[in-house]
Deep mutational scan, measured.
Amino acid sequence: RHRTIFTDEQLEALENLFQETKYPDVGTREQLARKVHLREEKVEVWFKNRRAKWRR
């Protein structure tokens, strides 16, 4: 597996949602994934990693 490289637009959308909710539900993740052309799984893992970074 290779590392996903997120575009600035994707990161902006992910960060904006993170400010709203640290734990978006699957529907919200799917909606964002469609909007920025990512797989929902990638969005889910990004949030998991972003929460870990936020806790540190």
Rank of each mutant, 00 (worst) to 15 (best):
W54Y: 08
L14F: 02
D8H: 04
V36P: 00
Q31C: 09
D8G: 08
D8Q: 14
L38Y: 02
A33C: 10
Y23K: 04
K35S: 12
R39W: 05
Q10G: 00
F18Y: 07
Q10D: 07
E30S: 13
D8P: 12
K48S: 10
L38C: 09
E12V: 09
R29Y: 09
W46N: 00
L32E: 01
R51C: 04
D25T: 07
L14S: 01
A52Y: 07
E9P: 12
G27Y: 06
P24E: 03
V26D: 09
P24F: 02
K53T: 08
R3G: 13
T28S: 13
V43P: 03
K22D: 04
F6T: 08
E20Q: 14
W54I: 08
W46L: 00
Q31W: 11
K22L: 03
D25Q: 06
R34M: 11
R51A: 04
E40W: 12
F6I: 11
E9V: 08
P24L: 01
W54N: 03
R51Y: 01
K53A: 14
R29W: 02
V43C: 04
E30Y: 09
Q10L: 00
E44K: 14
E12N: 05
R29G: 01
K22T: 04
N16M: 09
R29A: 05
E44D: 13
V36Q: 15
R3D: 15
D25E: 08
L14G: 02
K22S: 07
F18A: 04
A33L: 03
F47W: 03
P24G: 01
E20I: 11
R55Y: 14
T21L: 01
K22C: 03
E12I: 14
V43R: 03
H37L: 07
L32D: 02
N49V: 11
E30C: 13
E41A: 09
Q31G: 10
K48L: 04
R1W: 06
E30P: 00
N49D: 10
R29H: 06
N16Q: 09
R55K: 13
Q10R: 01
Q10T: 01
L14E: 01
F6S: 06
E15S: 01
E15R: 00
R3W: 04
R34L: 05
V43S: 01
L17M: 07
W54D: 14
E41C: 05
E30D: 12
K53I: 15
K42P: 07
R55D: 06
K22R: 10
H37K: 09
D8Y: 10
T7A: 05
R39L: 13
E41H: 08
A13H: 11
F18W: 10
F18V: 05
R1T: 07
K42V: 14
E44S: 11
Y23L: 01
W46K: 04
R29E: 03
V43A: 03
H37N: 15
T4P: 11
F6E: 08
L11I: 08
V43E: 06
R29L: 07
T28K: 11
E41G: 09
I5V: 10
E41I: 01
A13L: 15
K35F: 03
K22H: 03
L32S: 00
N49H: 11
E20P: 06
R50H: 03
I5T: 14
Q19L: 08
V26E: 10
R34I: 12
T21R: 04
R51S: 01
L32T: 04
V36C: 15
H2S: 14
R51I: 07
K48Q: 11
T21M: 13
F47L: 04
A52Q: 04
W46C: 07
H2F: 11
F47S: 01
K42R: 15
Q10P: 00
Q19I: 08
E9M: 10
A33R: 01
K48I: 03
R29F: 05
R39P: 15
V43N: 00
L14H: 00
Q19W: 08
L17D: 01
H37W: 02
N16G: 08
R29C: 08
K48D: 02
K53F: 06
K53Q: 10
N49C: 06
N16T: 09
E9Q: 06
E40V: 14
Y23M: 01
H37R: 07
T4Y: 08
L14M: 06
L11H: 10
R50W: 03
V43F: 03
G27I: 06
V43K: 02
E41N: 11
D8S: 12
K53P: 03
A52M: 13
K42D: 15
R55I: 13
Q19S: 14
V26T: 12
P24Q: 02
Y23R: 06
L11S: 10
H37P: 00
E20L: 12
G27H: 13
E9F: 06
V45A: 10
R29V: 12
W46M: 00
L32Q: 00
K42T: 13
E20F: 11
D8M: 11
E12S: 13
V36L: 12
L32C: 03
K53D: 13
E15V: 01
E40Y: 04
R3A: 07
R55A: 10
E40H: 06
V26K: 11
T21Y: 08
L38S: 08
I5N: 09
A33T: 01
T21P: 03
L38V: 08
T21W: 06
R39H: 11
D25W: 00
V36I: 15
E9T: 13
T21I: 11
L11V: 10
W46P: 02
E30V: 11
E44M: 09
I5A: 09
T28I: 11
W46Y: 03
Q31R: 09
I5M: 14
A52R: 04
N49F: 08
K35V: 06
V45G: 12
R29M: 13
V45L: 13
P24M: 01
L11R: 05
E30L: 11
V45N: 13
R51F: 07
P24R: 02
W46H: 00
N16F: 10
V43M: 05
L17Y: 02
W54R: 05
K22P: 15
R50S: 03
H2K: 05
R3S: 14
H2M: 14
V36T: 05
E40F: 15
K35A: 11
Y23C: 06
R50A: 10
W54G: 07
V36G: 02
L17C: 08
E20G: 07
W46E: 00
Q31Y: 09
E12W: 06
R3L: 14
G27A: 14
R1S: 13
T28C: 08
V36H: 02
R34W: 07
Q10M: 05
K35E: 15
R55F: 12
E40L: 13
H2I: 12
R39T: 15
V36M: 07
A33Q: 00
R39G: 15
T7M: 02
K22I: 07
E15A: 04
Y23F: 09
R50F: 01
I5E: 15
R50K: 07
E30W: 07
N49S: 12
R39V: 13
E41Y: 06
V26Q: 08
T21K: 04
R1A: 08
K35G: 06
H37V: 03
K48C: 09
R51N: 00
E30F: 07
E9H: 14
V43Q: 00
D25S: 10
L14K: 01
K53S: 11
E12T: 12
L11A: 15
L32I: 11
F6A: 06
K53C: 09
L11M: 02
G27R: 11
V45Y: 08
V45I: 11
E30A: 11
R55E: 10
R55Q: 14
Q19E: 03
R55V: 10
T7E: 03
H2N: 14
V36W: 15
A13W: 06
R29D: 01
T4W: 08
R1M: 13
